[in-house]
Design a protein around this nucleic acid. Structure first.
Length: 489
DNA sequence: TTTTGAGTTGTTCGA
DNA sequence: GTCGAACAACTCAAA
């Protein structure tokens, strides 16, 4: 029998929706929950005393444009985004007082650094009689949920994904609310301008290359996904490894900012009917799976960004070498594929996955520089910097990670270049001073005859550096260093 | 509890 | 140029 029922009383009051790492209007459970109230109050807080590591410069740049995109989207749904600076523990209760809100909603963020503050806030609000509810969405799974048969968390990717994939229920993504009602007092609420937050670089403004490469924001994320599924999904499994072609999804920074969710991606992948083979689809799903795995690892080992997962590496004889670190950061190591990668990172805020492994191996094994130096550089320069993927990947390459590469796996930057960038397209694009080198020598200009160098306009040590270290020597030295911690244990 | 198969992404050497 | 073996054993996850 039908029963006429009024809305629950709390829906007659406004609700706050606190945006964090979920800068989207679609598939946003917190926003949908707020939209059922009489009015919705979207707020973003620049956390000046954040318990987590501050965003790197590239992600701050991204945040500016992503917020301005979100702001416009919310405005067109009916209400503006309130922007505040300070401590959410003060600002949220203050906003409740000013608006008469009865509820606060947010989507969970999984950085362990935020966990106690977020749950304390939630408990405090509930204690004071307010509704405080958090929702899933950033990941396909709750990252502490999966357990092995013996009750531990997974440390190897394959069994992790075997356990997770069949278990992932692809829920249909939520549509954006059709409209949002502004709260009565909206015009009297304090808000800050994005510009006053100085998220964009000024002196100097290095962001030109980022702006050319990316369109931050939810609309940009969906364009990127559509283009990927239409143009780049076919052949993905093989082509994704070739840095000289545009073959990857380009979704990582959009995922990092929460402009799109993995559920939306999986759903779109399921519904797309192009010629991509099952192998292409499987490969791409597994890449999304790697992101889940990284969060699984970080959630179960919150020290992952700072501490060797394998404690043996605490005794690893890292070298301090400021000059070598700078050469690596600037892309002046004398190894073309390494330099191309580091310059792509600097110019565009992103680096191809294959090349990330090469440059990371070079830093940790050729230069014997602590992986944490590389991790922080990536944190500052990557538009897709993510505490889980960044830490897990660096530890994987360094050999200190959970299911790390074996210590004797030392990438040869010349072979890697020749194998994955055979025509030197990638190097030519990002190391223009080598553009005229013939492919035969583009990954090892020092081996080219003088006449070839002359013709290409390359003067080693002048227009392009000599290798800062000899590969064979570096390899031997790295093996000896790894031997040392093995013997010590 | 013990056993067993498996484990993202490589390089070098020698035939 | 190509191929297989060695690198060096270890940890994980499941049966």
């Amino acid at each position: 029998m039908l029963r006429m029922e009024r809305d629950p009383p709390h829906l007659q009051d406004p609700a706050i929706v606190w945006f964090r790492n979920d800068l989207r209007t679609e598939d946003n459970a917190a926003l949908v929950a707020a939209s059922h109230h009489s009015a919705a109050i979207p707020v973003f807080i620049r956390e000046t005393n954040s318990p987590a590591r501050p965003l790197g410069a590239a992600r701050a740049w991204w945040l500016h444009y992503s917020l301005s995109s979100l702001s416009r989207a919310l405005e067109s749904l009916g209400t503006p985004l309130i922007q505040l600076s300070g401590d959410p523990a003060d600002l949220i209760p203050d906003l409740i007082r000013k608006t008469g809100a009865s509820a606060v909603y947010w989507n969970r963020r999984y950085d362990p650094a935020f966990q106690s503050a977020d749950s304390a806030l939630k408990a405090g609000l509930q204690r004071d009689g307010f509704i405080a509810e958090s929702f899933a969405g950033q990941l396909l799974h709750e990252p502490t949920r999966l357990r092995t048969g013996s009750g531990t968390h997974y440390k190897v990717y394959s069994p992790f994904w075997r356990a997770l994939e069949p278990d992932v229920e692809i829920r249909p993504p939520l549509p954006a609310p059709e409209s949002l009602t502004p709260v009565d007092t909206i015009s009297s609420l304090p808000t800050e301008t994005l510009d006053s937050w100085h998220l964009l670089p000024t002196k100097p403004d290095w962001s030109g290359g980022l702006a050319e490469a990316w369109i931050p924001g939810e609309a940009g994320a969906h364009d990127q996904l559509t283009d990927f599924l239409e143009d780049r999904m076919q052949g993905y499994a093989d082509r994704r490894d070739i840095p000289g072609v545009d073959a990857t999804s380009g979704l990582s920074p959009h995922l990092a900012a929460g402009e799109i969710t993995p559920a939306q991606i999986f759903e779109a992948l399921k519904n797309t009917g192009n010629d991509a083979s099952p192998a292409d689809r499987t490969k791409f799903r597994k890449e999304i799976g790697w992101r889940e795995f990284a969060w699984h690892l970080l959630s179960n080992d919150p020290a992952l960004p700072d501490k060797n997962h394998n404690a043996k590496f605490d005794k690893f004889p890292w070298l301090s070498n400021a000059a070598a670190l700078t050469a690596w950061q600037k892309g002046l190591t004398g190894y073309p594929v390494v330099d191309a990668g580091m310059r792509q990172l600097w110019q565009t805020g992103w680096m191809h996955n294959r090349v990330r492994m090469i440059v990371a191996s070079f830093l940790t094994k050729h230069l014997l520089i602590d992986w944490r130096e590389g991790e922080s550089w990536f944190w500052d320069t990557l538009v897709d910097a993510d505490p889980a993927s960044n830490a897990a990947s660096w530890q994987w390459v360094a050999g200190s990670g959970a299911d790390a590469a074996p210590y004797f796996r030392i990438f040869n930057p010349v072979l890697q270049g020749e194998k994955f960038d055979p025509d030197g397209d990638y190097v030519r694009r990002f190391v223009p001073e080598l553009a005229k080198m013939p492919s035969k020598f583009i990954h090892k200009p020092w081996a080219a005859p003088d006449a070839v160098l002359d013709t290409a306009g390359v003067r080693l040590g002048d227009t392009y550096p000599h290798p800062i270290i000899d590969h064979k020597l570096a390899r031997t030295r790295a093996l000896a260093a790894y031997q040392q911690i093995k013997d010590a244990a």
